[in-house]
Simulated scan of single mutants.
Amino acid sequence: MTTNRVLLVDGMALLFRAFYATAMSNYYMINSKGTPTNAVYGMMKHLFTALDTYQPTHVICCWDMGSKTFRNDLYPDYKANRGEPPVELIPQFELAKETVAALDIPNVGQVGYEADDCMGTLSRVYSEDSQVFLLTGDQDLLQLLKPNVNVVLLKKGYGNYAEYHEDSFYEEKGITPSQMIDLKALMGDTSDNYPGVKGIGEKTALKLLLKYGTIEGILENIEELTKGQRSKIEENLDMLHLSRKLAAIHCEAAVDCSLDDALFYIDEEKMGAKFDELEFKNWKKNITGM
């Protein structure tokens, strides 16, 4: 029985969620240096709430490294529907990484890959000997569920989670985590801006996967499909295969982090100095609960 509890944090997901929670009311917490800090403050609150809830022995924070990845090489319109981040958020990207580092939590990322890919790669390695928790707001990570890997989805507010393990996911969704990739390939993803098979939505995609198991199973039995389903798939076959490549989290990224480096221990003096430097008010009560 493993005693390691590894928390992999989707840094960008926490940062964006924290930013928009207060930005809607134009509350950016600008400090005396003129730097907004609302996203970093909220991210730290999310992080410490999760630390208290899951009591990890090891913590690593994963990041996107720029807006372009190998998926843009495959499909230039991937995420092309997303605008530039708000100007108040831009300086907080590096500030967030600095603050994470002040907690002696490793920051991990690889150019050309998304944080999802880093989390997938590390969870694959660590889950052999450790219990892994993936903290995110992104349902795409549900495809990574397996024994020793749980996904913790942030819900509204602090400390509200939808936690999934392999069995509970199947009970709720009726498909396996790996079938999520084929589901997204069929129905597309408006958030990531790829179409899948035009005209096939989630309901039909689920029905086909429950009957045939995989995209290969569907194609092998395409004669059994309705005329409309068959024509839609045949007309969008290339996009179907491309969408599956876009949907799949790449678990072979060239990222590595020794568990020794990720051992979680807070240097209160170092942390306090960083929080004071950022001019976080009442951080002992409102962030760390100390």
Rank of each mutant, 00 (worst) to 15 (best):
C118L: 12
P147I: 12
Q139K: 15
F133P: 00
D116R: 03
L153E: 05
L141Q: 14
Y113F: 15
D116N: 08
F133K: 11
V149M: 06
L154E: 01
T136V: 11
A115H: 04
G137E: 03
L141A: 08
Q143T: 09
T136L: 10
A115W: 01
Q139C: 14
N148G: 05
S130T: 11
L141C: 12
L144S: 02
M119R: 00
T121R: 03
Q131D: 15
S130D: 09
T136F: 04
L141W: 02
D117T: 07
Y126L: 02
K146S: 14
V132S: 04
V149S: 01
L142V: 11
F133R: 09
L122S: 06
E114K: 07
M119C: 10
D140S: 07
Y126C: 00
N148T: 09
V125K: 12
Y113N: 02
V152I: 15
Y113A: 05
L154T: 11
V151Q: 02
A115M: 07
V125Y: 04
M119T: 03
D116L: 09
G120I: 05
L122R: 04
D138G: 11
C118H: 00
D129I: 13
Q131I: 13
L144R: 01
D116T: 04
D117V: 08
T121W: 10
S127I: 07
K146F: 03
S123K: 00
L141G: 02
Y126K: 00
E114W: 12
V132L: 10
T121C: 09
S127C: 15
Y126D: 00
V151Y: 01
D129K: 15
D140T: 03
K146Y: 06
L145S: 07
V152Y: 02
Y113I: 07
P147A: 07
L144M: 14
D140A: 12
V132K: 01
Q131N: 14
S130N: 11
D129R: 14
T136M: 05
N148E: 13
V149Y: 02
L145F: 08
L154Q: 09
V151R: 01
L134T: 06
L154S: 01
M119N: 03
T136W: 01
V149Q: 03
K146D: 09
T121G: 05
V149I: 15
E128S: 14
D140Q: 08
S127R: 11
V132C: 14
S123N: 05
T136D: 06
Y113P: 03
L144F: 10
F133D: 08
L153D: 06
L135V: 13
